[in-house]
Design a protein around this nucleic acid. Structure first.
Lengths: 233, 233
DNA sequence: ACCTGAACACCGTTCAAGT
DNA sequence: ACCTGAACACCGTTCAAGT
């Protein structure tokens, strides 16, 4: 609130650095990326840009619209593999590429999966995948094949990226998991060494610190096997 | 703010209906279920119970802790199938049961998948599933099989339940999807009748109004086939 | 066209004070 | 032990008014 701060301009005077829609989206992207969606607010973003909150509303609309734009920015950055490679490696690369990009910006990826995209510009990946599935011979069950693949891949990634609860420390979670009652949870207890901090629901580290690469590849390969088998039949 | 309201009690006077931890969790569950997480606040919950906000903090801790309890309540309600049925039908029933319960309380299910559970009491399903996978013969790749199944099922459901953006109406989305540029999205355009309002990313209805039952069954069956095949090999 | 400044109606959380 | 009442530090959003 100091008069000399860049946020204190006179009425109607324009910002030294022009506040464009693009600049706002970029700054919002960076803020959410660094601090998470909880650490993001319209007011903090405005302060960051040296501008009053109302200015944001003029440029991008309300909070929901802005989050939609951030989401869109993220989806556009997902890399598509060479379309001329064979189906199997293409599909595996798409899946891995999607997940890799989610790990680059976990907070934004979570946001983007949770609400449906508000714009149809993010349909490059779906379109390409549908094309490949049609080539493979799917027709009546095209929707199911597409949904299974898309839902499993996007879903796995978002479940994998679910953050730890803030209220409890990792050590406490570890202690709880390692000390689980063997009569109540016999199978977990019997395989604790294999599962600890690796199996979903039994992790205590940050998801980005302990990526489940092998499990993801396992899932995708099982799905691709299954889809091919169903076409041969 | 009327004096005669049940919310206006004198200092230190107890509520006519005692405010227990259980009552708070139950009321929170109902509020989120009906109005969604966005329509829920500590203050509105307190008002609903005829009590001051600070009372909630005394009984259940902060907002995060309360959401954890609501989550836990939901997970406990997931029905487990008869453990003595054969592996294949057991697994299918678990998956369907999980999803069915998510559809009963979509707002809570979304909440429960987004953050990791804060309590280890919700491990009945994981434990049972691990037991079945061990029976099937998984050992070194037990984690991967478990994660693939769990991640795909929970993930599919949460992606399926992603709500429409509030800012845009269903009609507008439908129009946009049906009018997609055929040169930019040739494969979607060519199969629009099969995909419209059924394929992920191409829906405009509410998720609960257009459940993707077939796609979910397709996914689960492909996964179960794949797991069994990997064990025979 | 673009931005300010203030206002409105909310939040979550804490804490001394009451019974 | 349980709850009030008020306070603190925030929110998102709107809108008349300025340049």
């Amino acid at each position: 609130m100091v008069k000399s701060s860049s946020a204190a301009r006179r009425r109607g005077v324009r910002a030294d650095v022009p506040v464009t829609k693009e600049a706002i989206v970029e700054a919002a992207f960076r803020l959410i990326d660094e601090r998470g969606l909880e650490g993001f607010s319209m007011r903090s973003l405005a302060a960051e840009l040296g501008v009053f909150p109302a200015t944001l509303y003029w440029h991008v609309g309300d909070r929901g619209a802005l989050l939609g734009l951030v989401e869109y920015e993220w989806i556009k950055q997902v890399r598509m593999p060479d379309p001329d490679t064979d189906w199997r490696t293409w599909a595996l690369e798409v899946a891995r590429g999607y997940r890799a990009h989610a790990f680059r910006h976990p907070n934004i990826a979570r946001l983007a999966t949770l609400e449906r995209p508000q714009n149809t510009g993010s349909l490059r990946l779906p379109d390409a995948l549908i094309g490949k599935l049609v080539e493979l011979g799917f027709d009546d069950d095209l929707v199911d094949a597409f949904n299974a693949l898309m839902g499993a891949i996007r879903g796995f990634v978002i479940v994998e990226l679910a953050p730890r609860p803030e209220s409890i420390g990792p050590d406490e979670i570890e202690a709880e998991i390692r000390g689980l009652d063997a009569t109540e949870y016999p199978n977990i207890a019997a395989n604790v060494d294999r599962l600890a901090d690796r199996a979903l629901s039994l992790r205590w580290s940050n998801p980005t610190d302990r990526p489940l690469d092998d499990s993801f590849d396992f899932l995708v390969n099982v799905l691709l096997d299954g889809l091919e088998a169903r076409r041969r039949a």
